[in-house]
């Protein structure tokens, strides 16, 4: 018998702190598998967000930094400009990237900053306890939209992949999901493609990954996967928005 699935070298052995069924764990593993398979672990520098993935520096087995809320793309820019041959990636959630860090992400993509952004969109603030995110869907109940988000009061959820794909500096923009095995495989392919885009110095790359938050959605892990498929995918269509 030969081993076909085991822990990648680009992850440390630390157990994840995430809630049961939270798909951050799957995405961490996919990022690490791509680093392994492209032999990039020793030249990778990752930047964690503020949010549930704030502790990701304990999990990725490569050089890591922890950023102020939303600033990961600016930090990545500072690193990449001085070490252009390294693989520099940020790992950010929806509040971090699309709310408080909107300025940094738009300008990093606009400059065609040669970095890769792993954007985990679960339509809610996880770490702070389930508040409304810029990607929270209309009607979705959160602790700060207790009667459901309305367009009148809070506007519309932001479609980051579509928004950033308009920038000329963006080289690869893709949206995937991790709600079933086929989509998990597609997500891995997209992450790999994003890393390759960077290593070929083509410019800014981002994979937006629709992810679950069973705890703050108030659903079981399996119900959360269904909720993602029925509610998020229709509003946030999957696919590649920019390839160059």
């Amino acid at each position: 018998m030969k081993v076909v699935a085991q822990r990648p070298e680009s992850l440390t052995d630390a157990p994840f702190h995430y809630c049961p069924g939270c798909t951050h764990g799957i995405i961490h593993r996919l990022v690490a598998e791509c680093l392994d398979e492209l032999n990039l672990r020793e030249q990778a520098i990752g930047i964690c967000p503020v949010g549930c993935a704030v502790l990701a520096y304990d999990y990725f087995n490569c050089d890591m930094l922890e950023a102020a809320h939303g600033r990961a793309p600016a930090i990545a820019t500072g690193i990449k400009r001085l070490l252009p041959d390294r693989l520099v990636f940020t790992y950010q959630g929806d509040g971090d990237l699309a709310s408080i860090g909107m300025g940094e992400i738009v300008h990093a993509s606009g400059r065609g900053e040669n970095i890769t952004v792993i954007f985990v969109n679960n339509a809610i603030y996880g770490m702070t306890g389930g508040q409304m995110a810029p990607t929270t869907l209309l009607g979705q109940v959160t602790t700060t939209s207790p009667y459901g988000r309305t367009a009148e009061q809070a506007g519309y959820p932001l479609k980051m992949a579509e928004l950033l794909a308009q920038n000329q500096g963006a080289a690869y923009i893709c949206r995937t999901a991790v709600n079933n095995p086929a989509n998990v495989m597609r997500t891995k392919k997209a992450i790999k493609k994003a890393f390759q885009t960077q290593m070929q110095a083509k410019g800014f790359s981002m994979v937006e990954i629709l992810s679950t938050c069973p705890t703050n959605w108030g659903l079981s892990p399996l119900e959360a996967l269904e909720w993602l498929e029925k509610n998020m995918i229709p509003y946030y269509p999957l696919g590649e928005f920019k390839v160059s």
């Binding site: 018998m1 030969k2 081993v3 076909v4 699935a5 085991q6 822990r7 992850l11 157990p15 994840f16 995430y18 069924g21 939270c22 798909t23 951050h24 764990g25 799957i26 593993r29 079933n180 095995p181 998990v184 495989m185």
Partner: peptide, 14 residues
């Protein structure tokens, strides 16, 4: 193992 968020599972094959 593909779907496990916590890397609990090791899989071997013939």
């Amino acid at each position: 193992a593909l779907m496990c968020p916590d890397l609990v599972i090791t899989v071997e094959r013939e």
